[in-house]
Nucleic acid binder design. Structure first.
Lengths: 241, 241
DNA sequence: GTATTCAAGCTTGCATGGAAGATGGCGCGC
DNA sequence: GCGCGCCATCTTCCATGCAAGCTTGAATAC
């Protein structure tokens, strides 16, 4: 938890949020704890005391407590009355739930993007292809982290171009929950090429304005990824991530 | 805001939540404010002061403040720094966003339910048909509120049988946001029969275990409802609900 | 040695006070 | 009359105090 500082960075880009306001201590605490959970400085299962976190962040218990409430709402922690903050672990069944949400949301997003008017649609397709190019490059260089970043950027772009703040927020919350699992399983993946191919198919459907094809392409992409990942988790006996 | 009492009722059935704990003051405040917003005791656009709400609920400002944070996370209010709690209104564009989320989630839910093993699947289909029967009865009697309740029960059952806590939570949050709009537009609806027919189609697909058909039926049902509702809102010039 | 009780120390829940920011009205200058 | 600036007031933000609940471990009875 060494790097857990009240980084001045914005709390979280909420998608549909346009009101700019300077971050409060609560925002700082929220961002710091969220980052600490994402990069596993706070390991799942760890039970922290609000007092201790407050001390470390150089603030009182109140903002930490309020940030914990937000994190609980996001599904990242559980606030146990009079016991502390529990960092939640992910079971394989949680991954199943998460994938179903993603399959639903990205499918609809792809459909929506493919139905945009020409200008926006082509811009979106171009952005998607650019990210896929980056993925292909990273794969050729054997740069796995870069591949992961580009893959994330592709899916983020797909959602963002659907212009639906609520979808963006939901997907972001879900991604936060599964971030650790994604990082872990990046090394287990075998079929990186398939992703590139499938991304191309999605981008092509968007470019053509074929909503039905875009929906199916996005769904199949995520369904295949899930069917590849879940057995992997089981075989490795990963009960919690 | 007369009925806004710290009703002893549970805070909110979180779906995947099994930890039973007696409600705290924060839970009371959350439930009371949520109910007040739902039934429009707190009108959209109204700017409340935490102090005033606390006074009315017979507690101090702290639990009200923390409940407000949760409500903000749910998208029901906006906490304006040093200005108060703003009850959010819904613009037609918000309804478009909400419908896209619902179309995505219920479509996937229907698909999942149709893919359940025989026992559960048939039980689900039976439950869906029962709710549809109630709707038909209510329609025959001209009992619009009962029709609305049965319609809500149908869609809630569809989601619940998909056995995905995250989906349940997301859909519940979205339903909270659109509850007022649904109540309002109930009176404007013309095509109640169509809903019954489409519900039957969904239930039939579930019973047959036809996931593809269930997905399409659920999607088309919501798409039609949206295409019927949005123009209605526009024509009535309803800028915020 | 084992089981039971109880107390001390830890934790958060909630109340409250001080401080700082936002707002609206009033008075002053023009 | 009209606009501008200032101040009173209202609001939240955050720190802190107190009380209550849970856990742990030691001491005692057997």
């Amino acid at each position: 938890m060494a790097r857990m500082q009240p980084s001045g960075g914005r709390a979280v880009p909420t998608g549909a949020d346009e009101g700019e306001k300077r971050p409060s201590l609560v925002d700082d605490a929220y961002a710091a704890m969220r980052a600490a959970i994402r990069d596993a400085s706070f390991a799942p299962g760890y039970q922290a005391s609000e007092q201790e976190i407050a001390l470390r962040l150089g603030m009182s218990r109140t903002p930490v407590h309020e940030a914990a409430i937000r994190l609980q709402e996001d599904g990242l922690v559980r606030v146990l009355p009079r016991k502390g903050i529990l960092i939640l672990a992910l079971a394989p069944d949680d991954m199943r739930e998460i994938y179903d949400v993603i399959i639903a949301m990205e499918g609809r997003a792809a459909e929506l993007v493919a139905a945009l008017p020409d200008g926006e649609r082509l811009a979106a397709a171009q952005a998607l292809d650019a990210h896929t190019d980056t993925m292909a490059d990273a794969h050729a260089r054997g740069d796995l982290p870069a591949w992961g970043r580009a893959d994330g950027a592709f899916h983020a772009a797909l959602i963002e171009h659907a212009r639906n703040g609520r979808m963006s927020r939901i997907v972001q919350a879900i991604n936060d929950q599964s971030h650790r699992a994604r990082m872990l399983t990046l090394n287990l993946r075998r079929t990186l090429e398939a992703s590139v191919t499938e991304h191309r198919r999605i981008a092509r459907a968007v470019r053509a304005g074929d909503a039905v094809e875009a929906l199916d392409a996005a769904r199949q992409h995520r369904i295949r990824a899930r069917d590849e990942l879940l057995p992997l988790l089981d075989s490795y006996g990963l009960k919690h991530l």
